[in-house]
């Protein structure tokens, strides 16, 4: 059995008296697409914050590629190859689509304490950025400020930005939320293509997409992992059906 790429050991986080994540332990194998599902308020986004470093954990450890990253900042974790997207769209609105991606490329290629050469004309940044935009079908929008992109385009841009940091683990917090049917099909295709290339932790509400893509699924209810297994097992798990899928089955 190979070493897990990401290992969570007993992660917990409370806001006041409210325990949002409770002793979450989870292993991600290299190359798998692991989905986390759960009803609203299950603590999924908080878990993403804890893994990515946006929120501090009260207890527990995050091990990434065998290294304890629990005390590292979000930026430090990204530089190690742990990238994330946001549930609520997060782009640089005044920057063009190309610049949004190019600045992410810049983060991993050489120092950004360079003060004189114009960054906009740096082909070492623009070429990979444009290639990523092409991959998401956004190349024709490269010169458009991100604020003017459609909702679905922004979602795709966010994925391109996350990939531009050259991650070995990509955490996606509801990448399909708010996208149109066509757009979400496009994103699913992209995720399918990425699968195997990099490890993905997918938080998603769209069950169809989850069961079509995931190698394994974990179910989070009230901050606790109640089940982990391959999609078929999870679908069949009576506890899961009762706690979560039951809403749909009923």
């Amino acid at each position: 059995m190979t070493e897990p790429l990401l290992r969570l050991e007993g992660l917990s986080k409370s806001y006041g008296a409210l325990r949002v994540t409770d002793d979450v332990s989870l292993d991600l194998r290299p190359g798998e697409l692991h989905a986390v599902i759960g009803p609203n308020g299950a603590g999924k986004t908080t878990l993403v914050h804890q893994i990515s470093g946006l929120a501090r954990s009260d207890r527990g450890r995050v091990l990434f590629a065998g290294r304890d990253v629990t005390r590292l900042s979000m930026a430090e974790r990204v530089r190690l190859g742990l990238a994330r997207s946001f549930q609520i769209i997060s782009v640089l609105p005044a920057f063009t689509a190309l610049e949004n991606v190019a600045v992410a490329v810049q983060a991993r290629s050489g120092s950004s304490f360079r003060f004189l050469r114009p960054a906009r004309r740096d082909d070492a940044l623009n070429a990979p950025a444009l290639a990523l935009l092409e991959r998401f079908g956004l190349a024709h929008r490269a010169g458009v400020p991100a604020a003017l992109l459609s909702y679905g385009e922004k979602r795709q841009l966010e994925l391109a930005v996350a990939l531009a940091t050259a991650p070995s683990l990509l955490i996606l917090d509801e990448p399909l939320a708010g996208t149109s049917h066509d757009e979400s099909r496009g994103v699913v295709e992209i995720l399918r293509a990425l699968k195997g290339e990099i490890t993905i932790l997918l938080i998603e509400h769209d069950m169809e997409a989850v069961f079509a893509l995931a190698d394994r699924v974990s179910v989070l209810v009230y901050g606790k992992v109640v089940a982990t297994g391959d999609p078929a097992t999870i679908r069949a798990d009576p506890q899961v059906r009762a706690a979560y899928l039951g809403e749909e089955a009923a």
Binding site: L54, A75, R79, A104
Partner: peptide, 8 residues
């Protein structure tokens, strides 16, 4: 936060 999430 966006900038920190790409590594700055």
């Amino acid at each position: 936060i966006r900038m920190e999430a790409v590594g700055f």
